[in-house]
Design a protein around this nucleic acid. Structure first.
Length: 381
RNA sequence: GGUGGAAUGGCCGAGUGGUCAAUGGCAACAGACUGUAAAUCUGUCGACGGGAGUCUACCAUGGUUCAAAUCCAUGUUCCACCA
């Protein structure tokens, strides 16, 4: 179980196509994984996710611990059964909430004391707590409990996070090996280090030294420039084992995905397709569109003529804008549907190109075609 | 016919002498969103001007006052109740 096979590699870039074997099926990489924090990919049913070829989705340890809680998940027979999703699931450890809920908590080496964002009650998060809960969830891939640093951050703080992330990775691993089932669940390590090369290298060395079946890169896509993100990936490409799957956490902006693939990343996840979809912003071949814009009011063409999704094959921009302006739930669903399919297809197309030996051309064409002012404005601060 | 009440910016609706180009909300327009405290959040929202500022505005007309969306008179329209 959890064998990772590389079936094709790009001779000019670091891109590769692979297969990762899990208890709920083989994941074909590169892959984009929709985020389903609360045991649902917002606005989409499992059947619809299958239709758009979502191979694996995420769930979140922190959120599912609070609601519905481990008892209900246990009685349900695990997260797959609970939400009726038969394909692989990856669970995040709650480590990202150490970052996103920073105002509600106190971090020490021992644990993270956190106030529930729901009712303010106290909860103690730790590597052991996370492994136990991820065992209850029964995900195919569990993540180490890590400390994601904010951006910008000082070298000193980033170093502390690296040190703590390694400490927590050791504890995650040791609890996991003792109490979870390594035949049914793979535990991935996470590399931190912010934008500091020396810390990235050190973190990679320490984490890969623990011999996990896969490795994630955390602490990126938190506000740094795209150039800084790519630089970190370049630095890590040299030192992370190539025979193991690599997962770039939180990345889902279209250009970031193709650039990530070019740097040897196999797995991505991001809330952007779902969240932006709900907020009426879509990604199409030529860039991004705010579908609330008046310019779409009488545009009866599809969102993206090149897209094969249900939304693009059946509805006009005019109608979709109307749904958005009225706050209709169908608008959120159709935009989410498109964004997810579009993003998943980026990974699919990259994979096809890698196998066909044309990845450099794909990368060039995609980048030339996809225009976004945001990309140019995203500079280092 | 009588009595009482009300008329405010695209809409709803605060404001009862100066700090009011006028609180709020909605609509509209624009923007943001990267391991989801997000079907959320931010900005603009009378006209002209780069700005200082100027002009036009709270039903209409006239008046009181240094000063009126706010007070008075008349008119118009609407609402409620009584005949």
């Amino acid at each position: 179980m959890f064998e990772f096979r590389i079936i094709a590699q790009c001779p000019k870039t670091g891109a590769r196509a692979g297969e990762f074997v899990t208890p709920h099926g083989i994941i074909h990489t590169p892959v984009f994984m929709p985020v389903g924090t609360l045991a649902t990919v917002k606005a989409m049913s499992p059947r619809e996710l299958e239709e758009i070829d979502a191979q694996i989705i995420l769930g979140n340890t922190y959120h599912l611990y609070l609601r519905p809680g481990p008892d209900v998940i246990t009685k349900a027979g695990g997260l797959h059964n609970f939400m009726n999703w038969g394909r692989p699931i990856l669970t995040d450890s709650g480590g990202f909430q150490v970052f996103s809920l920073a105002r509600l908590q106190k971090i020490t080496d021992e644990h993270v004391l956190c106030r529930s964002h729901i009712d303010g009650s106290m909860l103690t998060m730790s590597p052991e707590w996370s492994m136990k809960m991820q065992g209850v969830l029964g995900s195919d891939i569990a993540m180490c409990f890590d400390q994601c640093t904010e951006y910008p951050t000082t070298h000193e703080k980033a170093e502390e996070a690296v040190r703590r992330t390694t400490l927590w990775a050791e504890r995650s691993r040791s609890y996991f090996m003792a109490h979870n089932d390594p035949e049914r669940q793979a535990l991935f390590g996470i590399v931190q280090g912010s934008v500091y090369d020396d810390l990235r290298l050190r973190s990679a060395e320490e984490i890969t030294g623990l011999d996990f079946p896969g490795y994630a890169i955390g602490g990126l896509s938190v506000g740094e420039s795209h150039a800084a993100m790519y630089h970190a990936l370049d630095v890590l490409d040299e030192v992370m084992p190539r025979q193991k799957p690599r997962y770039l956490m939180g990345v889902g902006y279209p250009l970031n995905i193709v650039e990530g693939i070019a740097r040897g990343i196999d797995m991505f996840d991001c809330v952007m397709p779902t969240r932006n979809g709900r907020n009426a912003t879509v990604f199409i071949s030529s860039g991004r569109l705010n579908m609330r814009g008046k310019s779409h009011a009488d545009d009866f063409s599809p969102l993206d003529p090149e897209c094969d999704c249900y939304t693009c094959r059946n509805f006009s921009r005019s109608y979709l804008r109307h749904l958005a302006m009225c706050g209709e739930i169908l608008g959120s669903r159709l935009f989410t549907w498109h964004n997810l399919r579009f993003t998943i297809r980026i990974a699919e197309r990259a994979r096809e190109a890698i196998i066909a030996g044309t990845f450099p051309e794909f990368l060039r064409d995609f980048t030339e075609k996809f225009h976004d002012e945001n990309e140019d404005n995203n500079s280092d601060s």
